[in-house]
């Protein structure tokens, strides 16, 4: 069951993040990767390796997924406090890549 409810995201420097699938599915790209019908490697292994993300960035991505899921549909949202100016630009790239 755990396999179906969670997914492993791996960074290019080997960090692994396990998070709820529902949160990760915020990204259409990730959703496509996990689509069982297409049966890609990622879907079979329930693990995605991102060659273009470092652990630092992927952590922020995961934080954002949970931040988004937690505050979805609410009117008053706290400022996301996990983004620091240093990595902002890189995060923007990744946001475009993942379409989220």
């Amino acid at each position: 069951m755990a396999e179906q409810e969670s997914v492993v995201l791996v960074s290019n420097d080997g960090f692994q993040f396990i998070l709820r699938k529902s949160a990760a599915m915020k990204s259409p790209a990730i959703k496509g990767m996990l689509n069982p019908r297409s049966n890609f490697t990622e879907a079979r292994e329930n693990k995605i390796v991102f060659q273009n993300m470092s652990g630092l960035i992927l952590e922020k991505v995961c934080q954002y997924f949970y931040y988004y899921e937690k505050n979805k549909g609410q009117k008053e949202v706290p400022e996301p406090d996990f983004i620091t100016p240093e990595i902002a630009l890189e995060l923007l790239f990744i946001a475009d890549f993942l379409d989220c």
Binding site: A29, G32, M33, S38, N39, F40, T41, E42, A43, R44, I48, V49, F50, Q51, N52, F97
Partner: peptide, 15 residues
């Protein structure tokens, strides 16, 4: 034969 392919790699290449 999709099961041997990595979506991420394909996606990243197209990207």
């Amino acid at each position: 034969n999709a099961s041997t392919l990595s979506f991420e790699a394909l996606y990243r290449n197209a990207y």
